[in-house]
Write a protein that binds this DNA or RNA. Structure first.
Lengths: 244, 244
DNA sequence: CGCGGGCATAAAGATCTCGTTAATCTTTCG
DNA sequence: CGAAAGATTAACGAGATCTTTATGCCCGCG
C-alpha cells in the first residue's frame, strides 16, 4: 500500500519547491505547497498535513510567526529550512515549536532521513514498560502507524485518509471521551470545529468498516450529548465472541 | 524548578565531555559519562538515561553499532555528534535510530535547543499514554473525570450529560451542603436558578442510578430546607442505618 | 385531626441529538 | 478526458434526554 502521508512544503522559491516536490513524491509522500505564510496557515487548516517543511524566509509573515500560529492547534512535526546558519536563528526556531532545522544548502538524502525521523516520532507510542510501539491494539482492532494499516482480527480494512486520521486520533486517546469540537479541530482543522454532522457521517462509515454490527458498536462508542470514545482494552474484552 | 532528567554523554575526548557536562549541568540536567561504546551500553543499561548524546567516533566500537545495540531495548532519544559532515554519515545515523545529528563544531545553544526538542517529543508520547490522576472517590462511588466514567463498586453507571455535571459538582464539594440555588446556577446556568423542581427530579434520577436503596440514600443526602450534600468518605464507610 | 410546606417520584409531552441514506461536489488516477 | 473514490451537505426517523405537570408522602403545627 502507498504511503499516504501528506507533506506541506512552504517556500517562496519555485525551484526549491519543485526540487522538494520531486524528491518527496519519489518516496510516495503526497505533497502540497504554499508560497507564503498565509497560504501555509490556510493550507494547514484545510488539508491537515502530517508534516510541514517550512522555509523561514517568507515574503509576507515572519516564519517564526507562522510556526507559533500553527502550534496553537497543530502538532504536526515541522522541519525548518533556512539560509541562516547562526545559533540564534536555530534556537529561536526550535524553541518556537520546530522539530528540526536544516541549513541551506542541504542534501536531499539528509532531508529525507530527517523526515523519516519525524515520522518515527509521530508513530512512536508508549507500550508496556518503557518499550515504544509503533502500533496500537484494542482487542482485535489493530493500527499500524508506520504502514498506516488497520485490521480487525485477520481482516485488513481499507480506510480513507480522513477516516484513518479520525480513528488514529480516537485510538491515541482510547478510553477517553473526546468532544465533537476537539475531534473536529484535530482531524479537520480549526475551521471545521462545529460541523458535528461531518463527524456523524464519518463515524457511521468507520463503524460500517470496523464493527461487526454497526448498530451495536463495540469500539466506537457514542457519548450522547458529549462526543465519542474508542473503547479501551478492558471494555472490549468484556464481550466474548471474537478471537484476537 | 529542578530538572532531574539524566543525560548520558558518550565521547572519548575529555575536553568535550567537560564542556558538555558544564553546559548541561547548568540547565539542571544530571550528567553521566562514558568514554567508549562498551561503557555507553553498560551505563545505559544500569542508569537508564533519559537522553543520550553520542559521539560517533569512538575508540572501540563503531558508533552506529552502539546505536543499533541501544535501539534493541532503549527508546531514549539519541543526539549524535560527529566530525563528519557528509550525507552518508548523517543518513546512516538517522536511519539507525538517531533522533538528531549535529556536526562538530556545534554551538552550546543549538545543542541545548535540540535537547529541549527531544524532551518535548518524549513528553508528548508519555503524556498520552500515561494514566491521569483526576479521579474522585467517595467510598464505592468512583468518578473518572478524564474518561468521564462513573461506577459504584464494579458496576458502571451511565449518566446523561446533566446528571453527570450535577454529580461531578456535588462530588467536587463532597461533604459540604450546597443550596438549591447554587447547584442550579452551576449546573443549569444562572437563568434557571430558582427552578428547584428540576433539581428534585434529577436527584431522584441520580439516586435511582447510584444508590442501592434510593429511599435511604447513602451518597446523595437531603438537607431539609437548604439543599443537598454528597456524603464524604467517612460518612459512607459507616453502615447506612448508623447515621447520626 | 386537618392543613400546608417541602420533598420524592412517576409519567407525559417537547426538544434535542444521533445514525443513516442519498444526492451532489471535488479530487484523484488511469 | 472520463471514471472512481472521497468529501460535503441536506433530510428524516428513531431514540435519548430534558422539561413540565401531576400526585402522594412525611412531618410539624395550629
Amino acid at each position: 500500500m502507498k504511503n499516504n502521508a501528506v507533506i506541506l512544503v512552504v517556500d517562496d522559491e519555485k525551484p526549491i519547491r519543485n526540487f522538494l516536490r520531486v524528491s518527496l513524491s519519489s518516496q510516495d509522500y503526497r505533497v502540497i505547497e504554499a508560497v507564503d505564510g498565509r497560504g501555509a496557515i490556510s493550507l494547514s487548516a484545510s488539508h491537515i498535513p502530517d508534516l510541514i517543511i517550512l522555509d523561514l524566509g517568507l515574503p509576507d509573515v515572519d516564519g517564526l510567526e507562522v510556526l507559533r500560529e500553527l502550534r496553537q492547534w497543530s502538532s504536526a512535526p515541522v522541519i525548518v529550512l533556512s539560509a541562516r546558519d547562526d545559533d540564534r536563528a536555530k534556537i529561536d526556531a526550535l524553541d518556537n515549536g520546530a522539530d528540526d532545522y536544516l541549513t541551506k544548502p542541504f542534501s536531499v538524502g539528509e532531508l529525507l532521513a530527517r523526515v523519516r525521523v519525524a515520522f518515527r516520532h509521530v508513530a512512536r507510542t508508549v507500550g508496556i514498560g518503557s518499550e515504544t510501539e509503533t502500533a496500537l491494539r484494542i482487542g482485535p482492532l489493530h493500527l499500524d502507524l508506520v504502514k498506516r494499516k488497520v485490521s480487525v482480527g485477520e481482516r485488513e480494512i481499507h480506510l480513507t485518509p480522513t477516516e484513518y486520521r479520525l480513528l488514529v486520533h480516537l485510538a491515541q486517546h482510547a478510553g477517553r471521551v473526546l468532544t465533537h469540537g476537539a475531534i473536529l479541530k484535530h482531524v479537520w482543522g480549526p475551521s471545521r470545529e462545529g460541523e458535528t454532522q461531518y463527524l456523524r457521517v464519518f463515524m457511521a462509515n468507520l463503524r460500517r468498516k470496523i464493527e461487526d454490527n454497526p448498530a451495536e458498536p463495540r469500539f466506537l462508542l457514542t457519548e450522547l450529548g458529549v462526543g465519542y470514545r474508542l473503547a479501551d482494552q478492558d471494555e472490549v474484552e468484556r464481550f466474548p465472541g471474537e478471537r484476537d
